[in-house]
Design a protein around this nucleic acid. Sequence first.
DNA 1: CTAGATGCAAAAAGTTTGCATAAGA
DNA 2: TCTTATGCAAACTTTTTGCATCTAG
Lengths: 149, 149
Amino acid sequence: MLAGDTLKTKLRSLGHRCTSQREAIVKAIIDSPEKHLSAEQVYGALSGEESGAAMATVYRTLDLLEQIGILRKVDFGEGRARYEVITESGHQHHHLVCLECGKVQEVRQDLLSALEALVADEYGFEVKDHMLQFYGVCAECKPKSRKSR
Amino acid sequence: MLAGDTLKTKLRSLGHRCTSQREAIVKAIIDSPEKHLSAEQVYGALSGEESGAAMATVYRTLDLLEQIGILRKVDFGEGRARYEVITESGHQHHHLVCLECGKVQEVRQDLLSALEALVADEYGFEVKDHMLQFYGVCAECKPKSRKSR
DNA sequence: CTAGATGCAAAAAGTTTGCATAAGA
DNA sequence: TCTTATGCAAACTTTTTGCATCTAG
């Protein structure tokens, strides 16, 4: 998941500079348990560090890293964007969003290749990426929700 | 798609009033060619009408209608929410979002039942709804994008 | 050295809220 | 009539932008 200098290499090859803030921001996402951080959370994660970044820098960096294909912007309908690191093989990133506890779990399977082909066929739509979220109740919340609901 | 008095009936049965604004807001979405309107667009659609609504009312109404199951909030990562009318048979609503022209096309097929079963099985996740968007280039933009890109 | 990046503060954009007034039922 | 809904304006939250300063290369 994002080899040591892939970031620097990619930035440099596109005429951007590799700054301590940019490195720290990517690191913050990789090191987070959730792997899907909002700008606010990224900012918070760096606030102690020596290479802290201003909010404006966080936003500008997240935008840039999204544009050059390092990060992907995801939206779980919370009124704020989240970002995740793009890994090797493509778009096998689906999310299970728990409506009870808010936890987001990843599904690492290629569920959609067949559907993408179908969409290309039937609609003449050239799929470049997709976003699939399942909303429901996660395994941990299911026992609890039986009583409460 | 939303029979004549379903709205009034549903509102009344839950102790809400059926106001001209609420009717107009649902009508605006149904009558729109896109079928996925943002709050701003709903507001704009009503601005000429006799039953125009203030922005605050639009937001409050969209929230309410979402909560009582008349509308569904969708998010295409544009930094603003959109709303669509929920129709009969459930969640067979997938979207093809064109990255060139921004147009959103609906796919009316049940593509995910199999996947939902798989997710329930493998992750113990009880799926209540899902959200699937394909991002790419639509049939109309494909010829154009060949030259420009 | 020099273009590109950062920080700070101000401004946008989208959404929410308080309160007096209007209007369904 | 009486409670819920609306309008208006102000407040909040998230994201963007201008500009002087700093820094990677």
